[in-house]
Design a protein around this nucleic acid. Structure first.
Length: 568
DNA sequence: GCCGTTTTCGGCCCGACTGTTTTCAGTCG
């Protein structure tokens, strides 16, 4: 899969176009990049079948460039641009107040290529002499360099959510706001987030801003205005607070929830209907015809309500026009957790503690799936220990009413696609989770073949974290997803959506594709302690981003139905 | 550079803020 690489190059070209001030070419490349990014098919396949131009935003010129990237591994046009402007664009863009135009100016006038150059020239006060610059801007840039160095990358949703919720709660508790909402990519539950956006309805604007900028979490104030303030938090992320009136709050929430791509799409749709959409409402001439709630705006535009998790401009607008939006799985639909670990392997809590915590969450069942055999690093269990554990779970289950601990394991799929526990043991398990943990690159058949072989084993129910990616750390395996989805559907092997904050694997666009293939999914916490059980919400959010419905996810079933499904 | 249920040419989302300006460019979301 070269999708990521192609999208990255197109995005970089868009950056160059922005530097050159060619706004419309910039948009064209940006659109094309988005098109490739959100594609669930392999771009090489599409190119091979000569179908690139069928993709939205890709015409003759960009199709030819994509073909060149796939065939030669690079792109002449892109190499030329890089030579023309050899700057560390990402690093410089991370500096607050620095954009493409300023980066170009600095490079052309002073030869600034990276943060070190920038810092040197700022300290020598060379920046302030340039056109459009002044001492204030220079100082602001200097102040922002350190922050940009430390915190240039986006943060994982799972780690930022609790912080955002806590800020929201603190603001609510002041009683100064009528309503407080978290917007932005957090509301869309995107896997990584760049900042925290909080919107409030309030008439006591000065007081609420004062409270916001003096909260304990605040490290530094960037902007402090009457309607908008920006602060840097001690945890290294920026947070915005904006105040709006009640009658426009829906429009503001919609606007600041995004995504940017969806906003553009909705504005275009508005124009085609003779309307105008902004964060202050939907207007017909000068009259505001909707704005108090998001529902009102969607309705007026002739759309069904689009859930925040779906707002990425990946076809949801068309589906909403035609009344074909999926009936998304909801956060309360989960009836149990089918991958958890106890202190028998690398978990922190006892099986009893895990069970009682899951019971308290209102679950009907939970599977203990400790690591096995060769996964010695994770304290893997041998066959004798597994038999002992099964007996103990039987005893524990006598404790509970209307709740069952299922006997399971997370079995390792080795280099040859074999499992490290014999079928004699597997057949007595309620649930068998298969996963690849090691040997990438060392394997005999390629990872797809390993997984496919494991799926063919009649006792394997679930493939855990199927693509093996770790967000911002490890790339996904090079898998033949079509084949895996086809086999999953054919063998009733369920694909996991792992809720670990840095996995969220399967990811959103693959979930959509898996559902289209008729695969059944399972959302698991992969908890290693009772505190991890709650993160299953991240998995549900990811499923919603992949347009999954309740019927697509097996652990929304009650125990009886689930057991029937697993026993087949 | 892409796109078309008024269009194959002439459009391409919108508004606020900041710092530099003396009417605006650049950045941000």
């Amino acid at each position: 899969m070269q999708n990521e690489k192609v999208a990255k190059i197109l995005n970089r070209i868009a950056d160059f176009m922005e530097m050159k001030g060619d706004v419309y070419r910039m948009k064209a490349y940006r659109n094309a990049a988005h098109s490739v990014e959100t594609l669930s098919k392999d771009i090489e396949d599409i190119a091979f079948h000569d179908q690139l131009k069928d993709l939205p935003g890709i015409g003759t010129a960009i199709a030819a460039k994509i073909t060149e990237i796939i065939e030669t591994g690079s792109l002449q046009y892109f190499e030329k641009l890089k030579k023309e402007y050899p700057v560390d664009f990402d690093a410089l863009m991370a500096v607050e107040g620095l954009g493409p135009k300023t980066i170009k100016l600095f490079y052309e006038e002073l030869g600034i290529k990276n943060l070190d150059d920038l810092e040197r020239y700022a300290k020598r006060h060379h920046l302030r002499r340039l056109k459009g610059m002044g001492d204030k801007k220079e100082r602001k840039i200097l102040d922002s360099i350190e922050f940009a160095r430390k915190h240039s990358s986006r943060k994982l949703l799972g780690y930022i959510m609790p912080l955002a919720e806590s800020l929201k709660k603190q603001i609510e508790e002041t009683g100064l706001a009528e309503q407080v909402e978290i917007a932005g990519s957090i509301r869309r539950r995107k896997e990584s987030v760049g900042d925290i956006d909080i919107l409030v309805i309030s008439e006591k604007t000065a007081q609420i801003m004062d409270f916001f900028i003096s909260m304990g979490e605040v490290a530094e104030i960037v902007i402090n205005g009457p309607l908008k303030s920006t602060v840097r938090l001690k945890s290294g992320i920026e947070c915005d607070l904006r105040v709006f009136g009640r009658e426009v709050f829906g429009a503001a929430l919609m606007y600041f929830t995004g995504s940017k791509e969806l906003n553009v799409e909705l504005r275009k749709l508005s124009i085609s209907k003779g309307l105008k959409l902004s964060e202050y409402g939907l207007f017909e001439g000068k009259e505001r015809v909707a704005g108090q709630s998001e529902k009102e705006i969607f309705n007026y535009l002739g759309l069904e309500y689009i859930a925040p998790e779906m707002r990425e401009n990946r076809g949801e607008v068309e589906a909403a026009i035609n009344g074909r939006l999926p009936d998304l799985i909801s956060y309360s639909d989960i009836n149990g957790d089918l991958e958890t670990h106890s202190n028998w392997s690398d978990g922190k809590n006892t099986i009893g503690e895990m069970g009682r915590a899951a019971y308290k969450m209102g679950y009907e069942y939970m599977a203990i799936t400790d690591h096995t055999g060769t996964d010695r690093i994770a304290g893997g269990l041998g066959e004798d220990e597994l038999i002992k554990q099964m007996r103990m779970i039987d005893d524990l289950n006598d404790e509970f009413e209307n709740f069952t601990i299922l006997k399971g394991l997370e079995v390792n799929i080795d280099f040859n696609g074999n499992l490290d526990i014999s079928n004699d043991i597997l057949k007595d398990m309620d649930i068998v989770v298969g996963s690849v943990h090691s040997g990438k690159g060392l394997d005999v058949f390629g990872i797809s073949q390993r997984i496919l072989k494991a799926m063919e084993n009649e006792y394997v129910n679930i493939i855990a974290h199927p693509t093996g990616r770790k967000i911002q750390e490890e790339k996904e395996y090079d898998l033949n997803l079509d084949k895996i989805f086809e086999t999953s559907a054919g063998t009733d092997t369920f694909l996991e959506i792992n809720s670990h904050p840095n996995r969220l694997d399967l990811r959103d666009i693959y979930i959509k594709k898996a559902v289209d293939f008729g695969c059944k999914l399972v959302i698991n916490s992969d908890a290693h302690s009772i505190n991890d059980l709650g993160r299953i919400d991240l998995g549900v959010a990811t499923a919603r981003r992949g347009w999954a419905e309740k019927k697509d996810v097996i652990n929304t079933m009650n125990l009886k139905k689930l057991q029937k499904l697993l026993s087949v």
